[in-house]
Every structure is written in C-alpha cells, then in structure tokens.
C-alpha cells in the first residue's frame, strides 16, 4: 500500500498572501502568539539571566543583528562574505568619536550607524554591478585590506586599537539596547520585504533583466538595500565596541563574516527570523561547548553538518510549515 503525505492549511478561515480575516480570539491568538514569542523571549528573559549569560546573550544579539543584515542583502541578490566590514567600520567610527572627541555613546552609536552605512555603501558602489560570487569576493577582501591598512599605517591606534571607551551604565541596559535593535530590525525588515518595494527587491534577485525592462533602476534599489544593511551592521559594530570598551583590528575579524552566514543557513535564509534563530542557537552552543576544550570546534562543526543535512531548508521555514499546515498520511490506490 502506497502512502503519501497530504498537507492542509490550518487555522483561520480566510487567508491570502497578506490579508487575514479575523473572527475570534482563537484566530487572533493564532497570529499573535508567533509574533509575541521573540518579543517576550528576548525582553522578558533578560533580567533573570546570570551576568555570564547576559554577556553571552549580548554577543548573541550582536551576531543576530549581523545575520539579519546579511539576510537583507541576500534578498537583493547581494552575497556578503564581509559582514565584518560593516562591523569593523561601525566600531572604528564609534570608537574614534569617543576616544578622540569624547562623544557619549548616545551620539557615537547613531552617527556610526549612519556614517558606517554611508561609508560602506560608497566603498562598495563600484562593485555593485557585480553579481553573486564576484561581489562576495570583493566583500571578503575589503575588511582584510582595511585591517592590514590599520596595522601598517598605525592610524586609529594601530595594532593596539583604541582602549578605554565609555561603557554602557550596566550590562542589563546594554542587553536591552541590543535586543531592541534586533527586534526592530526583525519586524522592520519583514515589513519592508512584504511590501511592494520588497517585491521589487526580490525581483532584482530573481530576474534582474525583467525588473530593468519594467523601467526600474535596479542599482538605485541595490544601493538603498546595501545602505540599510550596512547601517545595521555598523550599528552592531558601534554597540559591540562600547560594550567591549575597545575598538580595534579584531572588529574586522573573520568571525563576524562567517557566523552570520552560518546562522542564516541553519535558521533559514530570506526570512529574517531564521538568521536570528540561527544566531541564538549557534552562539550559545559555542559557549556551552567551551567545556570540551580543544574538541569544541569538532563538535561544533559536526553539529553544523548534521543540521544542514537534516534540515536543509532551515529551522524557521520548517517550523512555519508545521504551524500553518496539518499533515496526514493518505493511502494511494
């Protein structure tokens, strides 16, 4: 007897791409609960964590921001192998403004986010025409070049970096700021991509010739998306640099380039929730595995491989499908 899986949409009665007809509390909860989980899960749990885990979750949230920014760029077909470029530039701008000019973090962080976004966009403007792997290569090389430039010319403190930056008043505030930023980026980007503007952006990734022939300047759109993504990445760098009280060459480290990609792949690309989930799985996991000493990387790598083989679509798309659809086995004749 052959069987096949049948999938049936669950839940609310009328549903289309983005219009929901709500008629009961049950249906409202059906939609509300999934959206409340990240908000409550992040903000509600934070005060109850031990200082050590607060620290872990600060760095997790910073990686989550970088991963969400990576996901925005990939939606427009921009493969970023250099989220560390955004992080490093954001951290150096905030660090320099604080170190040399004595600005408070209240000003350095927004200025670093916008300035970093602008600077990275200008740096990448000449290669915006490149697609896929070519753009990725340039993005990989830029942070490496910049960190060597700092080392060779000894500007911005050279290899010593800029120490003694103003920290956040306390760790909980730092955690709340990062988490609010993650939530804002998460819901904001999901909103953008669900709009008609987002449809055009996805179109550029899918079939750029068709978008060009619709009379749309695709480079304008790519530039806008790059600016938003780079700003969020620089914002993460500026936050991180004040939390570490230090800006330096480690800001351009490869970790900041690789982790966001791993998080996005594990969590499910182009969903924004996925990369965030991925970061919240991978970063704490790497902390827990510290107990294993030298074998840490082996287990970490093993986990990644098993995950990608078992759930190639990513965690979030899988969970989303299970939530929205009933599955049952039906017999075939």
């Amino acid at each position: 007897m052959k069987k096949r899986k049948e999938r049936i949409d669950r839940g609310i009665k009328a549903r289309s791409e983005d219009i929901f007809a709500l008629s009961s509390y049950r249906e409202m909860l059906y939609l509300l609960v999934p959206r409340a989980i990240p908000v409550v899960g992040l903000l509600g749990v934070a005060p109850f964590l031990s200082p050590y885990w607060q620290e872990v979750f600060i760095s997790t949230s910073i990686y989550a921001l970088l991963a969400i920014s990576w996901d925005l760029l990939i939606s427009a077909g921009l493969v970023s192998l250099g989220q560390s470029l955004f992080y490093g530039i954001g951290s150096y701008i905030a660090g320099a403004l604080n170190h040399y000019c004595g600005w408070s973090p209240l000003f350095t962080i927004p200025v670093a986010a916008l300035g970093g976004g602008l600077l990275c966009t200008v740096l990448l403007l000449p290669v915006l025409r490149l697609r896929g792997i070519y753009f990725a290569m340039v993005m990989l090389v830029l942070p490496l070049m910049l960190s060597r430039l700092v080392e060779a010319t000894r500007i911005l403190g050279g290899t010593e970096g800029l120490p003694g930056l103003t920290p956040f008043p306390n760790q909980l505030i730092a955690l709340y700021v990062v988490q609010l930023a993650v939530l804002a980026a998460l819901f904001g980007f999901r909103r953008i991509m669900a709009s008609d503007y987002g449809l055009v952006v996805k179109g550029i990734n899918d079939n750029d010739r068709s978008v060009m022939s619709a009379g749309i300047n695709i480079y304008l759109y790519k530039t806008q998306i790059l600016f938003i993504g780079a700003s969020v990445g620089s914002f993460a760098g500026a936050l991180g640099t004040h939390i570490d009280m230090f800006a330096g060459m480690p800001g351009f480290a490869l970790d900041y380039a690789i982790m966001p990609i791993a998080a996005a792949v594990v969590g499910g690309m182009r969903t924004f929730v996925g990369p965030m989930l991925g970061a919240f799985l991978l970063v704490p996991l790497s902390e827990i595995l510290r107990a294993l000493g030298a074998l840490r990387i082996v287990f970490y790598g093993l986990f990644l491989v098993v995950f990608i083989v078992a759930l190639p679509e990513g965690i979030f798309p899988y969970v989303q499908r299970k939530y929205h659809q009933l599955e049952r086995w039906v017999e075939l004749e």
Binding site: E17, D196, L199, V200, S210, A214, G215, I216
Partner: peptide
C-alpha cells in the same frame, strides 16, 4: 502580484 513590479516603475 507579478504585475506589481512594472506598476511600481517611475514611468
């Protein structure tokens, strides 16, 4: 929804 992209054009 496929029609949205041309309808979004500046022209």
């Amino acid at each position: 929804k496929n029609m949205i992209i041309p309808l979004y054009s500046p022209r």
